[in-house]
Design a protein around this nucleic acid. Structure first.
Length: 566
RNA sequence: GGUGCUGUAGCUCAGUUGGUUAGAGCACCGCACUCAUAAUGCGGGGGUCGGUGGUUCAAGUCCACCCAGCACCA
């Protein structure tokens, strides 16, 4: 039994995420985790909230809370939403955990011991009234190039010129508006990436992945390498974070981008510590774990950190920590071709989505249109169309017609009598090919293709019923009608198993109608046996409508509510 | 300004290392069926593959330039 380690990029603590964040890492990671578990692999699926950094501190201030309380609350809110989306994390941790403090400090100590950390003095803007240092983007002022009065310290969004905070005319704090600012010298730690040895290591590692990782991932990594790595400042003048803990660094913490990926490991330790009586071994997933296959899921903005910075940390430790084996990167999901925008009320957030429709509707449509090769457009019309056609008409109605027909003609149990013939043989053969393709696409994490196969498999069920027409056979050959019905029941079970990674709740309902438990193993036996899985006499119940359709009026209402096109 | 990605039927997208009449789903039209959430099945119409110019016996598929959109970087 192979061991599979899966991590999803960590959602930032600051606010509820929208559908684009969900489909960019957590949801596809979940589909993969569920698939791998069904195949009998031992799976460790890890995610967490990314809690450190200035945005969290400022959001806490805006909410009138201290940052620790704010983060604790927001963590619970996000955790609950993901649970309701059916995300099957083995552990959903927090980057502010004690475990992460310890591991982050451990990695920093190892990097330091290996000569990869350097102290430097840099200049930072300090806001006397706010009592804090201000990162570049939190200093505002007038742009020296275009005169725009609300230019940020890192860039003027009016003329797009890049700036230094010291370039701004009449600089002020974006936090309080205070103009009582001064430039101070402050000491910081830098991770030495601009170093031939480190670069060569990363380069050859990326080169070795060139042929099997997605182009999106390797091209971004290669671009960074080509431009030459730069030393990165890994500490900040903030109170909220992992303390640097060396003399002269009181009140300083590690930069959020240094500690966040380490939380993948730390969250696994959190998982172990959560159940001491079970004596869980977190380290076997991460240390000297050559038999583990580790896959990371993330959107494209996270790729540089996972292909360069974090691997440099791992490699630089000189210890046998696990490096990623495969990175699945995603492009952006767009809202009618544009950006999701909170301020302009365009797009749907994860909590709103769940208030409107069951999680599986979103899971299906999002995965079927996952932005794998390019940015992908989400529209309410497309969403409703796919739910209605694929989930309601093709899958839901197949289950419904089979169960209703059987109940009205044969009663509450699967009928006996009759035999399978050429039609079932042909069906089994067609299923064989489709299941093989589906399995291969899921293994390769090619979701658009996988879902096209899944849908084609559902269609085979309807084709079979239309061709064999048990309602007609019933009049002349009731035994044959019984055999066709039995086969259809086995198809319901099979469809549920094959669909479960994507739509676990619907799959569970289908299995429940047949009195079967959830979490059935992925099929390995021949399809000939699969279509005989439900024997005569097997009891069943008729569930409510599996998938309710979304009518045009509802689409119009949602368009109004969430800001569709125009 | 630099770099990268993208531009294929009304819509959303597939198109292996260049090779028979360019594919799928939706939408549309027609037919069949009636077990079913008017659901399903079958068939059909529809594209000079962003533009121009090259390489080649042969290009959506390689090269150059141009146009458009998006992203990242300086």
């Amino acid at each position: 039994m192979a061991r599979t380690l899966i991590t999803s990029a960590l959602p930032y603590i600051n606010g509820i995420k929208h559908l684009g964040n969900l489909v960019g890492s957590m949801l596809p990671a979940d589909v993969y985790a569920r698939f791998m578990r069904a195949r009998g692999n031992e799976v460790m699926f890890i995610c967490a909230t990314d809690e450190h950094g200035t945005p969290a501190e400022l959001a806490a201030i805006a909410a009138g809370q201290d940052v620790a309380t704010y983060c604790a609350e927001q963590h619970e809110i996000q955790k609950d939403i993901y649970k309701r989306f059916g995300l099957s994390f083995d552990h959903f941790g927090r980057s502010s955990s004690q475990q992460n403090y310890e591991l982050t400090q451990h990695f920093a100590a190892m990097l330091n011991a290996n000569g990869l950390i350097e102290e430097r003095t840099i200049q930072q803007i300090y806001s006397i009234d706010d009592g804090r240092y201000l990162p570049d983007r939190y200093v505002e002022g007038t742009c020296p190039h275009c005169g725009y009065e609300r230019a940020r310290g890192d860039q003027c969004e009016n003329c797009t010129k890049l700036l230094d905070p010291t370039d701004l005319i009449n600089p002020r704090s974006a936090v309080s508006g205070s103009t009582n600012l001064e430039v101070r010298d402050t000491r910081h730690l830098f991770l030495k990436l601009d170093n031939p040895e480190v670069e060569a290591k990363i380069q050859s590692w990326i080169d070795s992945k060139e042929k099997d990782w997605p182009v999106l991932v390797t091209s971004i990594a290669q671009k960074w390498l080509k431009e030459g790595l730069r030393d990165r400042c890994i500490t900040r003048d903030l109170a909220w974070g992992v303390p640097v803990g060396r003399p002269g660094y009181e009140g300083k913490v590690y930069y959020v981008w240094f500690d966040a990926p380490i939380e993948y490991i730390a969250a696994t330790k959190e998982w172990a510590d959560a159940a001491p009586e079970e004596k869980r071994d977190w380290k076997r997933w991460w240390f000297e774990a050559d038999d583990v296959r580790y896959t990371e899921f993330m959107a494209k903005d996270n790729i540089p950190f996972h292909t360069v910075s974090f691997p440099a940390t791992i490699m630089g430790s000189g210890e046998a920590w696990k490096l990623v084996d495969y990175i699945k990167g995603f492009n952006w999901l767009t809202w009618y071709g544009g950006k999701f925008s909170t301020s302009q009320r365009r797009g749907i957030f994860t909590d709103q989505a769940l208030a409107e429709f069951p999680a599986d509707y979103w899971r299906y449509v999002l995965i079927a249109n996952a932005p794998e090769t390019d940015d992908s457009s989400f529209t309410l019309e497309g969403f409703a169309g796919q739910v209605n056609k694929d989930l309601a008409d093709v899958l839901g109605n197949f289950v419904n017609r089979t169960l209703k027909f059987t109940q009205s003609k044969f009663g509450d149990a699967v009928p006996a009598g009759g035999d399978y013939g050429p039609a079932e043989e042909a069906l089994a053969k067609a299923l064989d090919e489709r299941i093989k393709a589906l399995t291969e696409n899921l293994e390769a994490i090619q979701y658009r293709k996988a879902l096209a196969e899944l849908r084609a498999i559902w269609v085979l069920g309807n084709q079979y019923l239309a061709d064999e027409a048990p309602w007609t056979a019933l009049k002349t050959d009731p035994e044959r009608a019984a055999a066709i019905t039995r086969c259809a029941f086995s198809l319901i079970r099979l469809f549920a198993i094959l669909s479960a990674p994507v739509i676990p709740t619907l799959a569970g309902k289908m299995l429940a109608a047949l009195g079967l438990p959830e979490n059935q193993p992925w099929p390995t036996e021949s399809t000939g046996d699969l279509i005989r899985a439900i024997p005569a006499g097997h009891a069943f119940t008729l569930p409510d409508v599996l998938v309710a359709k979304i009518d045009d009026a509802r689409v119009a209402e949602l368009t109004e509510k969430y800001g569709g096109k125009a």
